[in-house]
Write a protein that binds this DNA or RNA. Structure first.
Lengths: 247, 247
DNA sequence: TCCCTTAATGGTCACCCTGACTATAAAGAA
DNA sequence: TTCTTTATAGTCAGGGTGACCATTAAGGGA
């Protein structure tokens, strides 16, 4: 027999819990970091996990993710609106949570370098972890984090969202470091510069004088994110390690 | 206050129904078609909808989608395993179903030209519709279908999955027609040929003689899908209409 | 102060891929 | 046979990119 299409047969109704999980990425000091929270109870007590929570009765998964993002980053809902948030995929293995049937919609968020998350809340302990240096995470969060990293790396090739990792004003060096950090490769600086500047709408020159980095070397010009969202032609990463899985 | 991360507070549990919706695409006679079922009851009675159904208590969304695909196409579970099935995204607007809170995980399936779906089952009436000629669909299925079409078009650029629309053996003309149909553009035949043949693993020559199409013109050589899944460099569609949204 | 180091910026050049196009081969139809 | 149709082979110029080299503008140290 076939199940009724799109939820018609009330007898077939099965209750699930629906949650969102967030992979919040940032680039700090040339290394990719992700926001994790420490679990305070079983299962996986003491393990670290992606922040997340239940979808409330009258909100969409996107709204739930936006709400969690604001809570975890300690920023107001308004300012967290500016962060790039994108749905990744949904994880629904029946045994992914030992307590009950939980279907989780995963999101990736890209934020500029923020201060440490507020520590004193009622939420569990939260901090930034360098990707690749996290221990085994709770539930299937290692898988989610890996998928999220892959996705972000691929998105950098075809979209302009690398600027989402940068503050309002940034140098081309900052932007290049985003690519190098997420991809784990080194790029040629003049070539990267040419590609970015010849792509209309990727960045726009910021008014005002160049900033002084405090370091040595010629000071770099400042730019702001442009209006473009797509990158044509794409900015393909160098040969070698691609995302292996192309499901 | 913040909700507990990843489903900790049992009081926050809210029951949802979780379903899958399928956008099953095929190419027939040079036009893109999608499989729809007619609704037999309210709401949206008489409207057409994407096939789908509830996720059962002990299966993942992927398994539910695979099961529905087998049921709707009238093929055995085993042979439907071969079809390309890929998760699109999850739709969770609180009001997307007027009866209850339903979160739906959408999948896209690519199948070769199949016979008409079995008509005499207990399921609602099902048939292939040419995309763009469907009336308003039930629920938010117009949106899902549009998103699915966009995604498939983008995937053709970076992956080899165009072969998923083709039978086991196909000509380069067949493959080119897949691209032209999904993208809605015309491609230069020698250039397309060059691109496909110089991409290692995209296609492999089939043994045996060329087929006769029954039509006129020089018979074309037959190929099979290769082992490659990704397309580097990508096969970008001609200038012009891109997927507008790049969220 | 002068020189060295560092980093940003500017520019060159060859190669590869692509789009546009022409030519040839092999079939059916008139 | 001759024309039409379709597949296949090949040419050629331009764009984009990778690999370089050169120049500018800052700080640091002798």
């Amino acid at each position: 027999m076939s199940t009724a299409p799109e939820g018609y047969d009330p007898h077939a109704f099965v209750p699930f819990a629906v949650t969102v999980d967030l992979a919040v990425f940032t680039v700090r000091e040339g290394r990719l970091h992700v926001l994790l929270v420490e679990r305070g109870e079983a299962p996986y007590e003491g393990h670290w996990a992606l922040p997340g929570g239940f979808v409330l009765p009258r909100e969409s998964a996107e709204e739930a993710a936006r709400r969690e993002l604001a809570e975890e980053t300690g920023l107001t809902r308004r300012s967290s609106r500016a962060f790039h948030l994108e749905q990744l995929r949904t994880y629904s293995d029946p045994d992914r949570d030992p307590r009950m049937r939980v279907v989780s919609v995963a999101y990736a968020a890209l934020v500029p370098d923020l201060p440490e998350p507020r520590g004193g809340g009622d939420a569990a302990r939260a901090r930034w972890w360098e990707t690749g240096r996290t221990g085994p995470l709770a539930f299937d969060h290692d898988r989610i984090l890996s998928d999220a990293h892959d996705r972000i790396g691929a998105r950098l090739e075809y979209t302009c969202l690398a600027t989402a990792f940068c503050p309002a004003e940034f140098t081309l060096g900052d932007l290049q470091q985003v690519y190098e950090t997420v991809w784990g490769v080194e790029l040629d600086r003049p070539n990267f510069r040419r590609k970015v500047l010849t792509t209309p709408g990727f960045v726009q020159a910021a008014e005002g004088p160049p900033r002084r980095t405090g370091g040595r070397g010629k000071p770099a010009a400042l730019y702001r994110a442009g209006a473009a969202t797509a990158l044509h032609p794409p900015l393909l990463r160098p040969e070698g390690r691609r995302e292996g899985r192309t499901p």
